[in-house]
Amino acid sequence: MNRVLTLLGIAGAAILITSASIAQTLNTVKTRGSLSCGANGQLPGFGLPDAQGNWKGFDVDYCRALAAAVFDDPNKVKFVALTAKDRFTALQSGDVDVLVRNTTWTSSRDTQLGLNATGVNYFDGQGFMVRKALKVNSALELNDAAICVQQGTTTELNLGDYFRANRMRFKTVTFASVDEALAAYDSGRCDAYTTDASGLYGVRLKLAKPDDHIVLPEIISKEPLSPFVRHGDDQWFDIVKWAHFALVNAEELAISKANVDEQIKSINPEIKRLLGAEGNFGEQLGLTKDWVYRMVKHLGNYGEIFERNIGQGSPLKITRGLNSLWTKGGLQYGMPLR
């Protein structure tokens, strides 16, 4: 029965799936000469093209880092703007090689969607934004509120859990894209807008009067954001996974964009291994020895990418918090390269 129904479905849908090249993503990327990266496209600080059409953001820099590791050129990336609801289909079908789009790592996405989360590059949690004029100081006062939310997100599910756990009622108005949901909130259709806290800081800047809105203190869920790749290509999974660990390790070892040329001459064996002066770790991944050097040279370490896009060097001014290095009380911990 399922097979028959699946057969019926192919007429429209399987065209997508058939073009999926399950294995050999690295070879595909090299042959194509560019990395195809699924990004947000509407979220300041994480993924948004600027006025000149240059993609900027924390997630965007992860794609650029991968391109730098493969091609030694951070611009060899083709960005595909994806909505929350389209993103997994785009990755499953092979339309994009990697999905770096502030996407929460959950068990169902890791298993039944046929995807692999590669490692948490941003520890986040869901929050609420409301108008100051409402005089609401806590999410627990939002009983009966109308809440604007983006479709196809874990936020949509967490809302139900949180409000039920606190015996509150609510109404959602669901939109396909961030911009539409935000416009409805801005026009007064909803009392609150909800998404990951990092996203709240980003989208607040898009509102007509950002200072009229506040982010409530409650974080109602765990939202570990991670890049995603398809099941079935362990080599590519390893590359994306270790690109993140390498960037964190670079920060731990104080290797930055500015000093990477000095650091490569260091006598510290950890630094030598990381930057490829010793050992052949990059070649084991199918890349070159100097892959980490390339990433750091072009984009800087984890901390630099963070501060430039969403931290103190950006309009968002998000503090590192949970995303500090483990040595500074945070959760970012680079697995050892050896």
């Binding site: 479905g9 849908a13 997508l16 799936i17 609801k85 289909t89 996405r109 039944q112 196809g152 599910l157």
Partner: peptide, 14 residues
Amino acid sequence: TVLNQTGQAIEVVA
């Protein structure tokens, strides 16, 4: 939403 939460594009689209 259902397609996105379940990830079963073929069944849902069919």
